[in-house]
Amino acid sequence: MKKKKWPEAWHEVNPGCIVFAPANAREYHTGSWKAQRPIWDDSKCIKCGICYIFCPEGCVTQQEDGTFRADLDYCKGCGICAHECWPGAITMIEEG
């Protein structure tokens, strides 16, 4: 069954269309927009965090070993991380 998209009826619209659930936009996965995805070569990674700081989606996070990954549910494939990665540890590959 299709998940109900709240609100549907007019009486389900809350006063003022105020959203009480902070950051619930996470439910919207923008990852489907991308035509290419970033791939990390951890052997080249110097763990500087440039990819993390420059990600417009805020979807690059540091893993326990200090290397980084993009959350592909949100990554739109802009290629900034690969372009900015100083040691060249990230490459963009075609989706699909």
Binding site: P7, E8, A9, W10, H11, E12, V13, P15, G16, C17, I18, V19, F20, P22
Partner: peptide, 22 residues
């Protein structure tokens, strides 16, 4: 934290107007 003054497209806008009228 709440967000006030959100954006609504045609899939919900008429319902919002009806709610305001009511």
């Amino acid at each position: 934290p709440v967000s006030m003054g959100t954006f609504a497209m045609s899939d919900i806008f008429p319902e919002v107007m009806k709610a305001k009228d009511e």
